[in-house]
């Protein structure tokens, strides 16, 4: 399948945007200007970007505690995200959500989520809604290997498959449920094998290869839009940072991290684009500069934005 040049460049843009955003968050968190729990996506960018490149603005995603990448890939604005991390009134959630709860329902982002696996039935519900309203919308649900052991994985995917709902389940298997390696938290190597239990396709892809993700999810999205039901896609990937900022990562070796860094999804994609003649080194540098500039502006916007009034605590509980 030939992918148009514009599409490839746009995907590269988004991956770099995520990386630059996350690197800036590392600095701002270390400087104490961002508080709370921050879970970074560095190393997994190919999954969010490859998956979301199949969606339109009116399609849905549910995200996770490690959500910045999904939100940017789906079209979230970095300045409003950064403002949210700074707890400012101009943030996506007016400072009420923080990193783990950023949402923009207007562009189908049904929220990052602090509860592991919670998006699985929620995405089924968004897909049910699309089906009942008779639209061609689909939902993509991102979740991790850890979430594949929760109640919601079974109940949610069972429901979605029983009702043939237009939802694509994208498992980001980064090999660790916080500190517990996959080999110790489940008795299988491929989470995609579990698809058999629901009578749906299960696909394993290299989660650090954005084109592989794009194509696998594209097929699943097309299947969902045809009314043939969900697909479970397992993307094998790795997070370069700890579970959260400040995690000393005693559960893995430096060698393992270094090995995965060699498979960095952005370097790989850049190399591939250059090899394909779609991108020149100079253009890649230009994109990098552009994204750095955007993220600097996002930080400036966040810094200069007003704090919420303390009494706003009492608003937005009921509609």
């Amino acid at each position: 399948m030939a992918i148009e040049k514009e599409k490839l460049i746009d995907m590269y843009h988004r991956m770099v945007r995520i990386r630059r955003f996350e690197e800036k968050v590392v600095d701002e968190f270390a400087a104490g200007r961002i508080v709370g729990f921050v879970h970074l996506y560095i190393g997994e960018e190919a999954v969010a970007v490859g998956a979301c490149a199949n969606l339109g603005d009116d399609d849905y995603i549910t995200s996770t505690h490690r959500g910045h990448g999904h939100l940017i890939a789906k079209g979230g604005k970095t300045e409003r995200m950064m403002a949210e991390l700074f707890g400012k009134k101009t943030g996506y959630c007016k400072g009420k959500g923080g990193s783990m709860h950023i949402a923009d329902v207007d562009i189908g982002i049904l929220g990052a989520n602090g509860i592991v696996g919670a998006g699985i039935p929620i995405a089924a519900g968004a897909a049910l809604s699309a089906k009942l309203r008779g639209t061609a919308q689909v939902a993509i649900c991102f979740f991790g290997d850890g979430a594949s052991n929760t109640t919601r994985f079974h109940e949610g995917i069972n429901l979605a498959s029983a009702w043939k709902l237009p939802v694509v389940y994208v498992c980001e298997n980064n090999m660790y449920a916080i500190s517990v390696p996959q080999s110790k938290h489940q008795n299988i190597a491929d989470i995609a094998d579990r698809a058999t239990a629901y009578g749906i396709p299960g696909v394993v892809v290299d989660g650090n290869d954005v084109i592989a993700v794009y194509e696998a999810v594209g097929e699943a999205v097309a299947r969902a839009r045809r009314g043939e039901g969900p697909t479970l896609i397992e993307c094998k990937t790795y997070r370069h940072r700890g579970h959260f900022e400040g995690d000393p990562t005693p559960y893995r070796t430096k060698e393992e991290v270094d090995e995965w860094k060699k498979k960095d999804p952005i370097s790989r994609f850049k190399g591939k684009l250059i090899e394909m003649g779609v991108l020149a080194e100079k253009e890649a540098d230009e994109i990098d500069r552009e994204m750095k500039g955007e993220i600097d502006k996002a930080v400036k916007f966040a810094e200069e934005s007003p704090l919420p009034e303390p009494e706003e605590t009492l608003e937005d509980v009921y509609a």
């Binding site: 897909a127 919601r152 109940e155 949610g156």
Partner: peptide, 28 residues
């Protein structure tokens, strides 16, 4: 059966799916 839907015995999926449907324009 579309508007009066029998579900599996899956209370988590029932309420979770209701959340997703409600956030996207339905009144479950």
């Amino acid at each position: 059966p579309d508007r009066v839907r029998d579900t599996p015995i899956s209370e988590t999926a029932i309420v979770g799916a209701a959340v997703g449907a409600a956030a996207t324009g339905m009144r479950p």
